[in-house]
Each structure stands twice: as C-alpha cells, then as structure tokens.
Design a protein around this nucleic acid. Structure first.
Lengths: 222, 222
DNA sequence: CATGTCTTGAATGTATACAGCACCTTCTGA
DNA sequence: TCAGAAGGTGCTGTATACATTCAAGACATG
C-alpha cells in the first residue's frame, strides 16, 4: 500500500476539481470512466464517490453519481448555513487566537490586498484567512462542516473568479474582522463575519443573476 | 438487484443500531465482522461504513472504523450546532406550515403527553414533532444536516432514556413551540426552539455528569 | 410515418481472490 | 525470568469476474 490509498487520492483530486468548478455541473461520473481515468479499479472509485456524495459535491441519482448542479436556491441555502455556523465558530475561537495566528492573518490580508495576486491565489488566501480563526475554535465537527460548506460555495465563486477579488468592501470587511479579532471582541468579530458572508453572497448572486439575464438575452436575440 | 441494495440495507440497520446506542462507543467495526454478520461481502460493508463515517457515527481511525466515542465536549459541540441551525430552519419553515402539518403535530404532542407512551416511543414522537416543521423549510441540505445532528445526539439521549420523557418543562416548551407555529410567529418559534434545545442539552448534560460522578464514586469506593 | 417491442450494450452491485501490513503469540537465548 | 526475534493470524486495500438492471437503438407493425 502506498503512503496514501488510491481511494483517498482519487477523492482528493476529484474534490479539488469539483470545487474548482473544472467539471461541468450535471455531468455524470461513471465509476468505470473515473476508474479508467485514474488507472485504478472501480472499488476505490466507489469509495471516493461515496465520500464526495456525503460532502454534497456529487449527487447519487439512483445508481449513477452526477456533479451537483448549481442553482440560486442552493447558493442561498449554503450561505444561510454558513451565516449560521461561521459567526458561531468565530465567537468561540476569538478568545483562543494567539500571536502566531494573528501574524499569519496579517500576511494573508496583505496577500489579498496586493494587486499582483492572481484571482485564484486571492481566493486561497481568503479561505486560509478565515480558516485561521475557525481552526482555533476547538470544535472539530464545526470546522469540518465549515470547510465542507466553503468547498460547496467555492464552486459558485470560481465561475466569477475574475471579479471577486476586486470588490473593495470585501477587503474592508477582512480588515474589520482582523481588528475585532486582535481586540479580542468575539461578539463583534462574529457579527462582522456574518455581514461579510452576506456581502459575499450578494456579490456572487449579483453576478449569477447578471450572467443569467445575459444568457436569456443572447438566447432571445440569437 | 433486490429492491434495496445490500449496502443501503447494512447502512440503514447499522445507523439505527448506532444512533440507538446499541453498540458500545469505541467498539471497532471490522469490515470482515460486519460482512459476516449481515451475510454479505465486504464491498457493500465498505460503502456503508464510509457513509456512516461521513455522518459522524463512526470514525475512521487509520484503517479500521470505530464507533464514535461519546464525550461531554462532543455533546456540547453537537448542541451548539443544533442551536445554530434548527432555529434558522424553524424560522424559514413557519410561514409554510399548513393545516395538515399542524394536525400531525398536535397528534404527536398528545402522544408525548400520554403517560402510557414508552420512553422510546416518546423519543420518536419528539423527533417527528420537530421534523414536521423542518421538513417544510424547503432547504434540503439544512434538513439533512439537522437529521444528521439529531441522530448523533440521539446516542446520548438513549443512554438516559428513562428520564428524558419525564421532564415537564420540555413538554411545556413543545406546547409553546406549537402555539408559536400556529400563530405564524416565525421569530418566536425560532427562539423557542433555541431555548428548547438548550433545555434538552442541559437535561442530558446533567444526567451525564451525575452518571460520571457516580462512576467515579464507585471506582473510588470499590 | 408513428409506435411498440425486442435486442444489445454498458454500467452498476456484489462476490471472490490476492497482496501487503500490523499486531500478537511464541519460542529461544542470555 | 526477561528481552528479542520469528512466525502466524487477521485485517485492510485493491483487482478481477460475474450477474443484474437499465437504457437506447433497431426493427417490425399498425
């Protein structure tokens, strides 16, 4: 057995590809096809797909696994859940945030504010910035849930990669969150996190709606 | 293929047994052993265990799956999550609650208040009572999460089955929730749900602590 | 030309088979 | 008697093989 099982390898790679939106939502992932693609048998693929299904990245429609479709309702629900859980995780974590985490957060903030940072790197820094706080909540299930929800929303973000990093008020919110965390004000940090999530939701939703309207326009015009 | 796959059957049965606390937490569930027990091969068992691991009922410690241990910290975290999500689901669902659901809820309330109801039946009615509301939230992911969290907390409840149904203020809270739902007051219903969860948490925690103290006493005395 | 049926193919669910690893037992030597 | 090594036993991960089911397409028929 290699250092990592084939199932884990397939799951990790597929998870990355799916949350980065590299596979069209609605695509059927046949066990046979995935197995051939990764050069393994169907058993580890079954394991991987099962896990991804549990994480919500694929749906088991009857027998076959299909990449979970994107929808405005789903996006809404995901952000509702995040707005419920992430402020809570923030509130629990703030009293435990130490010097080292704050240093790393400042670094990540600087990376995000650097115009030279590519959109994809911006998104990764953004994820890491928030994860720094959550990791200190000492709530393993909560952290796992937050990561899972973030991966699911990432699929919506990657569609609009070009614009997300440019939204100035998101950056301002990051600075405000960091300030509250530094001040040890858990309640404020939690509320700022909630507002920040609402902002993100609104940014993505706006672009999604605009895109949809554009799509309809083209359809009607062409 | 039978009407239901072997993997689904094993998963459903194991899930039931685990959330009912019929298997000692910490027990290792070997694929081979479970396979023999259900008279199937290891492949469907792998699928089932994988799914249960994703639901948090078992932990994959290295290679083997062990029944997730119970702990006061875990109970705390589970209730923190439930208190974050269930009031939200309630708030979203209340405007959609119709006549039929209210009737069923009244029935379930009567069942719970009937002294002839056995503890286990009480717990099932309790679950169904709350599920009536959540199901109408129109949030599939949220509902799945709530069910998952409830199953995980059930493991703690079943340990103290004999006392849960006797706590009068839990019954009173149910009546209050039903009243708020009937009145269409989403905000009140949500807040009452949060309080109700805090009550449940406290009831279970008290008994868990008492049991632990008793255990220590016996250990010290014997 | 539309429609129903049959056939063929592919994909899944599952069983069996094999290889590697870990832990435990046991035996040997000091 | 105790420490250490050798063997065995049981587990997992994975590949291969087979039965079953579902779907699509071809063909006959009204």
């Amino acid at each position: 057995m290699p250092s990592e099982s084939a199932a884990a390898r397939v799951a990790r790679d597929l998870r990355e590809r799916l949350s980065a939106g590299l596979v069209e939502p609605g695509t059927a992932l046949s066990q046979t096809g995935v197995a051939e693609e990764y050069g393994v048998s169907r058993i580890p693929v079954r394991d991987a797909l099962q896990q991804l299904a549990a994480e919500g990245l694929v749906e088991l429609r009857g027998a076959t696994a299909v990449v979970t479709p994107l929808s405005i309702e789903d996006l809404q629900e995901l952000y509702e859940l995040r707005e419920a859980v992430e402020p809570l995780a923030t509130r629990l974590a703030v009293p435990r945030v130490g010097r080292a985490a704050l240093t790393r957060m400042r670094h990540l903030l600087a990376t995000m504010e650097d115009d030279a940072t590519a959109p994809r790197a911006w998104l990764e820094a953004n994820t890491a910035f928030h994860a720094e706080v959550y990791a200190l909540a000492g709530r393993p299930r909560m952290v796992a849930l937050v990561e899972q929800l973030r991966r699911l929303t990432d699929r919506y973000l990657y569609v609009h990669l070009d614009v997300i990093g440019d939204v100035e008020h998101l950056q301002a919110e990051h600075r405000a969150i960091l300030a509250a965390v530094e001040a040890g004000d858990a309640q404020a940090a939690a509320e700022l996190t909630r507002v920040h999530l609402a902002s993100s939701h609104s940014v993505v939703l706006d672009h999604l709606l605009a895109q949809e309207a554009r799509g309809r326009g083209e359809q009607a015009g062409g």
